[in-house]
Amino acid sequence: MIRIIFSTLILSASIFAANAQEANAILQKMDEIMFSAKDISATQKIILIDKNGNEEVREATMLQKGTDMRMFRFTSPASQAGISVLSLPDDIMYLYLPAFGKERRIASSSKNQNFAGTDFSYDDLESKSFAAKYTAKLLKTESNAFILELIPKTPSDYSKIIINVNKTNYYPEKMEYYDKGNNKIKEATYNFKKLGKYWNTELVEMINFKKNHKTQMIMSDVKYDTGLTDDEFTVRKLKQ
């Protein structure tokens, strides 16, 4: 009897372990799809939509090398044209405001703040591997998607994120963000499209349920692996 219970325990524990293993494998595959390009250059259109349906459009060019070097340069509206944000490894960020002609280092001690009026927090925009930040659990397998539950490894505003990962191509289709009271507070939906050998995030839409506010990020003119060098990601470049 005891043996049966014991073996059931081991069995369920191993199912559990298998589940975790499988879930983490799926997450790693997703990371590969999302962050495999050596570098990207693209144009970003950011559309902010408030609860009354008012839209505000911003445009920027974006350069990214690896997962931790990124240059974001706003081109419109005119009042914000030239504002640039440079992100470097170890959470170092510089901001350049052309009207002042100076750069300032920005430390954002809290990554849960929203980036420039969007519904994305600095945390959401970080191109850091999901597998490194979260522990995954496979909730269920649907006909075209794996449903994963991600639990943050470090302190976060989120209690969990539920991700739908495409079963054939392993890109995320939807991410649901939950607060510590287990309320769904945000939801991101993704449109991926294959460009050459990479899957590109053509559109991400983030909805903030509490603010009733939406942000769409649309990427175009995407070029992969053009051989960007570290020189593109310096304070000197920021000011140009």
Partner: peptide, 8 residues
């Protein structure tokens, strides 16, 4: 002197 910290 080195910059701004926007945070909590």
């Amino acid at each position: 002197e080195w910059g701004i910290e926007i945070g909590k």
